[in-house]
């Protein structure tokens, strides 16, 4: 748009400047990718047989947590936090698996669409409660964690259900080349198709605006309440994607929420999203998730007790958040 009125030279310099600023903005993500490369090299050194099959397995195991961390990132960018992500995943997963059991492949398409709508609705309920009651996000979503988990238990008391074959096929196996896992491609496509248009729209801008300063956003004409509800609805939508990926990758559903909520918070912080909102994107957290799960893989190769691995993950969570808040304190003072 502005290129039409500026000279070509100024447009070119503007373009380099925008490339530099884009690099600076994604500096955190790029350094995460560097860490990831180092970790892959370490894994390869420890376990020389780690190859295409290992990457397949990694992509499949990472998928639900990556989608959960995208969901969490959207809530955190809008200066919220959603502790019910794990429960919403469990609820959407059991609903999808119980509806798809003993039904046709075509019916499953309707189920998937219905479950995604369900995710939007769950998230919108969270957001509406936060906006209407003015109770802090953390309290409302902590309470909703138990409400949605209870609903999941009502749908299905013990693990069960089934997944449609085409849905399973979306996540299993490679694509084109044996080194490119289908699960990773599908996950990135889903995130890109849903998130990038929103990020570039008025809604995306409003979400970052209410995240960095709600009062300033309000005074610039952003409807804070509505944006917040929509952000939580998106969080619910990505939780539903996460729940579907649980059903698809395991073939069944479990009514008890996994550790996704906590790990998603860790991944979001590690992925460069500020817990005070308005800063970061969704791709940093995805890389962070891969790093976290590669660390676990390395510990398995080193024969570390899995319980100790849990301890290490809790320690990483707390450590990352500590460093993150230290940086924030510095920034405030400096």
């Amino acid at each position: 748009m502005s290129a039409a009125v500026t000279t070509p030279a100024r447009a070119a310099s503007g373009r380099t400047a925008s490339i530099v600023s884009a690099l600076r903005r994604s500096g955190w993500t790029l350094s995460l990718l560097g860490i990831l490369a180092v970790l892959v090299a370490i894994t390869k050194a420890i376990q020389p047989t780690f190859g295409a099959a290992g990457i397949q397995g990694l992509a499949i195991s990472v998928m639900p947590l990556a989608l959960a961390s995208v969901a969490q990132a959207i809530a955190v960018i809008s200066r919220g936090i959603d502790l019910s992500v794990g429960s919403m995943m469990a609820l959407t997963s059991v609903v999808s698996a119980s509806l798809m059991e003993d039904r046709g492949e075509g019916f499953a398409v309707a189920v998937v669409i219905g479950v995604l709508v369900l995710g939007l609705v769950l998230g919108a309920i969270n957001g509406t409660l936060i906006v209407v009651t003015r109770v802090p996000d953390i309290v409302v979503t902590l309470a909703m964690l138990f409400v949605w988990a209870g609903c999941a238990l009502l749908v299905m008391e013990t693990p069960g259900g089934a997944s449609a074959q085409w849905l399973r096929g979306l996540t299993l196996g490679p694509l084109v080349n044996e080194w490119i896992p289908k699960a990773a491609v599908v996950m990135l496509l889903v995130v890109a198709i849903v998130w990038i248009p929103i990020r570039r729209s008025r809604l995306g801008l409003s979400m970052y605006a209410i995240g960095s300063d709600p009062l300033a956003a309000f005074r610039s004409g952003v409807s804070v309440g509505r944006t917040k509800i929509l952000a939580y609805a998106l969080t619910g939508l990505f939780s539903a994607f996460g729940g579907l990926s649980l059903t698809a990758t395991t073939g069944i559903a479990t009514p008890v929420p996994g550790p996704y909520t906590l790990m998603s918070v860790a991944a979001v912080v590690l992925g460069g999203v500020s817990l005070s909102g308005g800063r970061g994107g969704v791709f940093g957290p995805i890389v962070a998730v891969v790093i976290l799960s590669l660390l676990r893989t390395i510990m398995t190769f080193l024969n570390v007790n899995t319980n100790l691995a849990t301890v290490v993950q809790g320690g990483i969570l707390v450590g990352v958040v500590m460093v993150g808040s230290l940086i924030q304190l510095r920034r405030k003072r400096g």
């Binding site: 550790p259 906590l262 849990t310 320690g315």
Partner: peptide, 10 residues
């Protein structure tokens, strides 16, 4: 909340 949740994992 995050500190104590992380501690509960540990």
């Amino acid at each position: 909340l995050i500190m104590t949740l992380g501690m509960s994992l540990v």
